[in-house]
Amino acid sequence: MATKKYTVTLPEDLAEEIRAEVGSGGFSRYVAQAIERQRERDHLHEFVGWWEGEHGEVTDEELAGAEAERLAVQRLHADRKARSVPDRKAG
């Protein structure tokens, strides 16, 4: 992917915290990923607005059902991941 250098102004404390966490070489990657995540959220927000315009507002019950399903998938993923990790004590 082609890249181009831009000048961006950030709060100094925030920028230094990020640099300390990811190192100077990872700073641009971190910022690019943060921008990509924000764009995904913006697109999702637009989609939800469209969906609610077409089908009505999402109810609390629907939100609770979706959250329960998300948690179930998260648990399933965690269980599968735990089973795929070899037992280091066995060796």
Rank of each mutant, 00 (worst) to 15 (best):
G49T: 05
K5N: 13
R19K: 08
D42N: 08
V48I: 09
H45N: 14
L10N: 07
L14D: 14
H45E: 15
G65K: 00
A78D: 14
E61Y: 01
A15S: 04
L71M: 11
Q74K: 12
G25P: 05
H43M: 14
E21F: 02
A72C: 02
D79A: 12
E67H: 07
H77K: 15
A82F: 00
S24L: 09
E61G: 10
T7N: 14
Y6N: 13
G49V: 01
W51L: 15
A15E: 02
E12H: 07
G53T: 02
E21W: 02
Q74F: 05
V8H: 01
S84P: 03
R19Q: 08
L14Y: 06
E46F: 04
Y6E: 15
V48E: 11
A78S: 11
E46N: 09
L63P: 03
K4N: 14
Q33A: 12
E12S: 11
E40R: 08
V73I: 14
A78C: 07
E21P: 01
R39E: 13
V73S: 11
E57P: 06
W51S: 14
V48G: 03
G49S: 06
R70Y: 06
V22W: 02
Q33T: 10
R41Q: 12
W50F: 10
H55P: 02
R41A: 14
E17W: 07
